[in-house]
């Protein structure tokens, strides 16, 4: 039975469709209904609500229509600009770093002659099973003034006095980037490894015979082969980074000052920490939506994939 005809065709053919075929189509809708309704109610509807709220202002539920005033306020809000700058710093440094690392690990771990593959794969993936709150709590200690990172660096003679990992703005951002990379690299690696397993290894053998070195193989075979999955992981990582919350909340709390504050954290503070300003917070959240859409389009364009 072919149901993949165009809609008008299907409509005109409706009368000809047997009762059984019609029943089949309806059954199909039945299968997808629950999921579709849930996503509509808990994603699309709130999304529209958020837009509606972003055009209003006021405390709690006492709202007044203000047009685009909230959006104009964004450009004069120093805290918002700081949060956007911080978030983009994480994005620009961390996502490429993690994707490259993940790719390198997966290529190395895909070598058929490598011993201890299972151990290395599991070890590198392991951080991905931890809760972000737990990870953050552990690293907050490790990066503390008296923490193990400083102890190790002092012990090795790399530094003379303990570094203020969580108290000095640049170091605090670096610490957060390290933690996110630790937590997510193995996770992304699994996607690449799974895809590589579908690549016939004889292609690499042939390239070797043709005299291609490891770096050439990486850029000429691996990257093109994995393009769709690289695109997928870069988009999900971008979306994830733009929403960064758990880590920063539990490592630095956004400090020192606002030097590590993320956009999500700012929205949380505006809505649940300070006197609730749902209207303005929604405008901030819509700013993230716009950024995600724009960045995703760019990523699709850059990789030049139709699908």
């Amino acid at each position: 039975m072919d149901l993949s005809r165009s809609i008008p065709k299907a409509l005109s053919a409706k009368k000809k469709m047997s009762k059984q075929q019609l029943a089949q189509t309806m059954v199909g809708w039945g299968f997808v209904a629950v999921a579709a309704i849930l996503i509509a109610v808990f994603s699309f509807y709130p999304m529209i609500q958020a837009f509606y709220l972003s055009l209003h202002s006021g405390m709690g539920n006492n709202l007044q229509f203000v047009g685009i005033a909230n959006y104009l306020r964004l450009f004069q809000d120093a805290t918002f600009i700081t949060a956007v700058t911080n978030t983009f710093t994480y994005l620009i440094v961390q996502v490429p770093l993690m994707i490259v690392l993940g790719l390198v690990f997966s290529v190395v771990l895909n070598r058929p002659d490598l011993k201890g593959k299972g151990f290395f794969r599991t070890a590198i993936f392991l951080p991905a099973i931890t809760s972000l709150v737990a990870t953050s709590t552990i690293f907050r200690y490790l990066f503390g003034q008296q923490g193990l990172v400083n102890m190790a660096l002092l012990g090795l003679g790399i530094i003379d006095s303990p570094l203020g990992w969580l108290t000095q703005p640049t170091l605090a951002r670096i610490a957060i980037i390290i933690v996110i990379t630790w937590r997510w690299t193995g996770y992304n690696m699994i996607f690449y490894l799974s895809s590589l397993q579908n690549v016939d290894y004889s292609i690499y053998e042939a390239a070797k015979i043709d005299g291609a070195n490891a770096i050439q193989q990486f850029f000429k075979i691996t990257i093109p082969m994995l393009k769709p999955i690289i695109l997928f992981t870069s988009i999900t990582s971008t979306i994830g980074t733009l929403q960064l919350f758990d880590e920063v909340m539990n490592i630095t709390g956004g400090g020192p000052g606002n030097s590590t504050l993320t956009i999500s954290q700012y929205i949380y503070n505006l809505s649940f920490r300070w006197t609730p300003d749902f209207g303005y917070a929604s405008a901030v959240s819509f700013a993230i939506v716009i950024m995600i859409v724009v960045l995703s389009i760019i990523q699709f364009k850059v990789t030049g994939d139709k699908k």
Binding site: S43, P46, I239, Q243, I267, Y268, S271, F272, A281, I288
Partner: peptide, 16 residues
């Protein structure tokens, strides 16, 4: 809906 960040949903969901 995968593109919709949770940050944009949390306020309306909370109110809901």
């Amino acid at each position: 809906s995968m593109m919709i960040p949770f940050a944009a949903l949390m306020i309306p969901l909370f109110r809901m």
